[in-house]
Design a protein around this nucleic acid. Sequence first.
DNA 1: CATATACGAAACTCAACAGTTCCGGATAGC
DNA 2: GCTATCCGGAACTGTTGAGTTTCGTATATG
Lengths: 214, 214
Amino acid sequence: MTQLDDVHTSSDAPKLGRRRDPAKDQQILDAAVEVLAETGFDGMTIDMVASRAGAGKATVYRRWTSKNELVLDAVACMKKGDLDSLAIPDTGTLRGDLVAMIRPPSIHDAERKLKVMAGLASMLSSAPELADAANEAIVEPRARINRMLLTRAIERGEIASDTDIQLISLISPSMVAYRSLILRKPVDREFLITIIDGVILPAVGLGQTAPARP
Amino acid sequence: MTQLDDVHTSSDAPKLGRRRDPAKDQQILDAAVEVLAETGFDGMTIDMVASRAGAGKATVYRRWTSKNELVLDAVACMKKGDLDSLAIPDTGTLRGDLVAMIRPPSIHDAERKLKVMAGLASMLSSAPELADAANEAIVEPRARINRMLLTRAIERGEIASDTDIQLISLISPSMVAYRSLILRKPVDREFLITIIDGVILPAVGLGQTAPARP
DNA sequence: CATATACGAAACTCAACAGTTCCGGATAGC
DNA sequence: GCTATCCGGAACTGTTGAGTTTCGTATATG
């Protein structure tokens, strides 16, 4: 947590007038994420964020000590409103689960996160805190779901118990990120299905059995 | 080509004195690539590049009109000194070829290119010229080799002729880039072998036959 | 040796941006 | 209504870096 409590603590406040609007915090963080995705860390200015949030620059600095702290909180805040809210499907087969994870909100969410990641890429090596926050908010949630689906497939005896879950769970994040960030091609349903059937399932030994399309 | 010819063309030159040193061009471009890999596009200053090349800022601007043009040429120049010089192995099997491509100069080259790519990532969406140059110099050479190895494997009947070469050739670049740029873990020989045996070979139908190690 | 040119270094201009301060207006508690 | 506090806006400071100019020096050509 990097937010300011301002100068006063609750103990010494005498009479009190207008209180700080907590909703504004979230508007500013959301605006920061937007700008971060559009322009990257270096292109982002506090004025952009403030005006997009309908706030003044001073209001931003009343709540965060620096641009770095704001970005850190903004990235961490992407963790919420996450895939956690979307229930993870259980269709009975690994392929069914993987395909069921392809949904418009999920895809859109992933694309925006990748844009933010691209905007932070050059800083990751020099700012470990930021790198950790980005990993926790952007990378890890998706990988965790994949690991869960694979573990479940092992438990139901669908795939071998010595499957390299760490490796397999990174196939789709890697190929999606590469296609989006570096090749700058759209990540659509067709591409994701191609990865599932052409790479992931063969890698876990489910390749030869061409599955029926749902 | 974005370099300057300076003001004069060869036709109107009268007497001529000291001539511009062509070797300096390359020193500046090399320095630019170094700084780009270390600090990214936004962190890179012309003074850094100049002093690392043992040159003055004015010398840089005598040869390139702007920072953008310099970076564009520096990225394009990475294409040379490339894998092209390394002969592409032909070991008789796809796995042998893929493993033979894992070599210190190749790995080191790839890591530096990925650092440059990370430093450019935030610009790619807003600077199409730069994105194209980066693709041509960093992404495409590696993918081209993979496509060649796969095509050869089809020709010798080792893998199916309807193999999705485009998709398979992107597996290792994607997973290497993700591991290096986003996870920031080392890309060592062990990891590359794991990708080959755990993902690529299964995807082309060579999974079950555990190959003898050379 | 004379001239034209390139060189590195340093001083310069100019614009953008991080961060601060001040202001008049709004609003919650008393 | 009084007061403490927050608000958005705008003016301000200080720094950084792109791009330019100047200058004393080095070196090819003739």
